[in-house]
Design a protein around this nucleic acid. Structure first.
Lengths: 143, 143
DNA sequence: TTAATCTTGACAAAATATATCGGGTATTGT
DNA sequence: ACAATACCCGATATATTTTGTCAAGATTAA
């Protein structure tokens, strides 16, 4: 079980934008350069973030990306979900999405209970961490 | 982020064995049949569980698998780790394993802190759940 | 000995993750 | 108007992981 580079990259992009003063949009080229990420790849990720309403984009010369709302209102979970779908997808849901049949998918399935509990834990944790809190932590060096 | 069918299947196999009276080993064919899982696939999973010391195997006629220790001493995390490696692998570690370079992998990386916190939450939860507790829950129907 | 059963490694197929590319659209500055 | 910059979007390509299958071998009970 792991988060993918998509989630990691997306978070780095958002953090990069958030760390700037916000007086002007940050363009993909700069982000890719500073974070050492493939520009064509994070372009897709930023598009997803935009469609989910986490960032806003401005086209043309002087264009780029800015956060759509206050960093403290953007959770780590928001960003992960934007690029990866659910932060934690239960295997039961996965089977459903793949049109496969989970033989034990009754509501009282013992494992289902475990996965639901795990999902709850994960979601709670990722909702508690925000871009704002990460930024503050980075600033104070108390990481 | 998700657990794979390997983890799910492995847990179903262990639960299946644990649910029996233990007077005789359970063979793969029976487990596969009862759990509706591909026999050749779970064969590999059970091999991993054996190598990790979670189950014991007996060959020949009347052979099969039995739990290596008390169900209450086998955690969900034990089973997941046996077949999937770490229950939650941090992206940083993954990069290392793939011999790739994570540019931001300094000890004070803000995201690293997040992943470490998440890993801790996940591991704690999965260590708290045991085959024994799941079995008890299934028995009482209080799921 | 024979049949049942685990053991092992190799192979194959499917799904996902990670990019890369090309052409299009909007905006700014001249 | 025009050129330069930068986002937009869909298609395609590659790599990796996941999932599943197969075949030959080893062990044991009856």
């Amino acid at each position: 079980m792991r988060i993918t580079t998509q989630g990691d990259y997306a978070l780095r992009c958002v953090l990069n934008i958030a760390a700037k003063d916000g007086s002007q949009p940050v363009c993909i080229g700069v982000i890719a350069d500073e974070e050492k990420l493939p520009v064509d790849y994070i372009e897709q990720l930023l598009s997803k973030l935009r469609r989910k309403g986490l960032v806003k984009s401005l086209r043309g010369v002087k264009g780029g990306y800015i956060l759509a709302r206050d960093p403290s209102k953007i959770t780590v979970k928001d960003v992960l979900e934007a690029v990866e779908g659910e932060a934690f997808e239960m295997i039961c849901e996965r089977f459903r999405n793949l049109k496969k049949k989970c033989k034990s998918a009754s509501t009282d399935c013992v494992l289902r209970v475990v996965w639901m509990g795990l999902k709850k834990r994960i979601d709670e944790y990722l909702e508690a961490e925000t871009i704002g809190s990460l930024l503050a932590r980075a600033g104070t060096g108390s990481a």
